[in-house]
Amino acid sequence: MIASARWRAAPARPRPFFLWLFLPSLAAALLFVAALCEVAQYAFRVFTPGSLEAGGFTLENFARLARPIYLSVLADTLLISLATALFTLLLSYPVAYAMVRAKSDFVRSLIMLLAVTPLFTGEIVRTYAWILVLGSNGFVNSVLKAAGLVNAPLTMLYTRFGVIVALVQFSMPVMIIILAAALAHVDRNCERAAANLGAGPAKVFRHVTLPLTLPGIVSGTVVIFAWTMSAFSTPQLVGGGKVLMISNLVYLQGLSSFNFPFAAVLSLLALAVAIGALGSMRPFVSRLERKAAVN
């Protein structure tokens, strides 16, 4: 996905298991494409209020996208996804660094355990936990009040801020694993060589560690961005209907209004944006890599 120019195609060799590995993936791909076609065909059909049956051909559903309310949901979704990806990166890098560079095995295992455990609690459980923490009488507000820092409770639940906080926590384990893999591949001698040549710790990081982990940084950010684009239960519960992301809108249209055609249009839009984001990442990465290399 994020292969940079330095990864050359392997020379052609006989691949004895190619067919056996190819067939199952082909089957999975066909099923996925079939489901996608089923969704896509709805997008071009007339919605009849009060009926589950869609009517004849129309482009009306696409024209409806241009309404400001829907555009603002799309903008919100992109904004929340981008913010989540960036904050997840900023918070995960130090954790991954500490984990990979820990001198004692015990500390390394402890960080690993703490970082990855949230993966094994369900999304709903974690989201409810955030509702308890962020609520008006939740943990954060109780602490702030007790400390005398605020008079009235801060509103965090049902805001974009609250949704992003929950999504960041939700995304961190995956980001930490991706970054840890990248950091573990950095040759420590390269960092030592830089220090030997006169680079202090900050410069070693800026000129060696950071550029060498750049592929991991970018793939982590892209994965979390695309993942957050399709977030549903976190914005649904923490956002409480006040923060709408595309998935929530699809849910509203499809399962509250039973407007399958417009829900299909929104789904296709979300898919297109996600694919577009992934695709535009590649030239961006190679330019970034080249830039990081020079200075």
């Binding site: 040759d187 001698n189 390269c190 030592r192 060589a193 830089a194 000129h207 060696v208 550029p211 060498l212 890599e289 990081a292 290399a293 020079v294």
Partner: peptide, 10 residues
């Protein structure tokens, strides 16, 4: 260094 430790990104 024994493995040279050249900066691969430069």
């Amino acid at each position: 260094f024994q493995n040279y430790a050249l900066f691969p990104h430069m």
